[in-house]
Design a protein around this nucleic acid. Structure first.
Lengths: 240, 240
DNA sequence: GTCTATATGCTGATAGAC
DNA sequence: GTCTATCAGCATATAGAC
């Protein structure tokens, strides 16, 4: 590993955003056509999409830059022009996935009614599993492999989020709005159950049939999951 | 892929068992020392143990026979002497994992009381996650990657088991011993939640601390999970 | 910005001496 | 049954012509 530890996914995220902005500014300032920057942007996003699929299917070590480039319809050297190393490309994919995880996490704070907060969060996580299963699989692969490239995100972003949500859940328990339970166990159960519909797609398809993952069926399953999680947590609304 | 479809994990399992028996018989019949057969057996099990760890960490494509052999302290050629191809070795690992999955599945039939049956099954799955997390990770990796090497096991063994358990759950619902729910969603929730403690070990360690996976803590967590799953399913004992 | 050609090392698997 | 030496192919990454 030649990269120093400032080049983490989170650090990369910041770099990327400002780098893109700088590229556009430079093009504008020189009165050059915006074309180059937009070719770059579209090639980068296309490569990221293909990389997400290959990393999901084969994990970091199993994925090859040749296969990613082939799926993107670009020569391998072109991939290395945009992303210097396979690891840099991987970190960008992890970043993108975490951004969506974060957006879903916000729905937890939509209300101080645990029925609405927990129900809404479960629905958001289920929707994410359906909309972007590949991203969830990349995340899962990374953690199964020991989460070596994600320690920073886990410790600096996910952990604080979890800890404040644990306090919120404990308050709800004190107020009698939730059954006495271990908050972390509840959160892990929500993550496990909702992400299962993305990560274990292939097993669900084999066991429950292709229809099980159709739009209508998935929506019904989502409501089943919401119902069961709410029952598991013993949630009730403050008013009632 | 040069192997024909009779060489599936399930087929391999049968072959292995009889092959081992034959090897022992032959040695006994020829009055040769038992040594050779037991060297074979011990090398094979050792290689299987190391292979399980490497496949868990890196997935099938990411794992290399060189690394597996190195961890086993054997030359790579020796590995290929016992297991002709990487795929054959992988299938044997999948078999072993499935055997344990199957043993845990039996606990579901320990009683006709859903509180005992479901609670016991959850405890068995949690115990398995703790005792053999690497096996669970291999299974998870395989399914995330599309379950291409497990279609037979899923369709011929897991699916029938699931379908008969679905009928049992439906009967319990009819008898008023479970809340009205979709049985498959309940089973998926049990699998997802219990396997989470094996597959997402690294995340749990990062978020909840190393202590979270200690023996005492894990036992407490198991009871939390049992409590929440039973509440989610609305289970009650027939007598009460 | 694109892409052919190539460097360097690792991959699964085998040959054949011991 | 063990293991060194080696194969052909694929891995990541780069050089340099266009």
């Amino acid at each position: 590993m030649r990269d120093d530890d400032t080049n983490t996914p989170a650090a990369n995220l910041a770099v990327r955003t400002s780098a893109n902005a700088n590229a556009r500014d430079a093009a504008d300032a020189a009165h050059k056509p915006r074309r180059k920057a937009s070719i770059r942007a579209s090639n980068e996003t296309h490569l990221l999409t293909c990389a997400e699929a290959v990393f999901a299917e084969r994990g970091f070590e199993g994925a090859s830059t040749a296969l990613i480039a082939e799926r993107a319809g670009l020569p391998k050297a072109n991939l290395h022009y945009y992303f210097p190393t396979k690891l840099a490309l991987y970190w960008r994919v992890l970043d993108d996935v975490f951004e969506e995880w974060n957006a879903a996490a916000d729905t937890f704070d939509a209300s101080d009614d645990p029925v609405i907060a927990i129900g809404g969060y479960v629905r958001a996580k289920m929707a994410l599993s359906r909309r972007r299963p590949l991203g969830s699989k990349v995340w899962a692969n990374e953690i199964i492999s020991g989460a070596t490239h994600m320690q920073d995100i886990l410790l600096k972003q996910v952990k604080p989020w979890m800890e404040s949500r644990v306090q919120l859940i404990e308050r709800w328990i004190d107020e009698g709005l939730l059954a006495p339970l271990d908050p972390k166990t509840l959160l892990f159960m929500i993550w496990a159950t909702t992400q299962h519909y993305a990560d274990f797609e292939a097993q669900i398809r084999a066991l429950a049939g292709k229809r099980a993952l159709s739009a209508a069926s998935f929506e019904a399953t989502t409501e089943e999951v919401v119902k069961m999680i709410l029952r598991a947590s013993g949630a009730r609304s403050p008013a009632g």
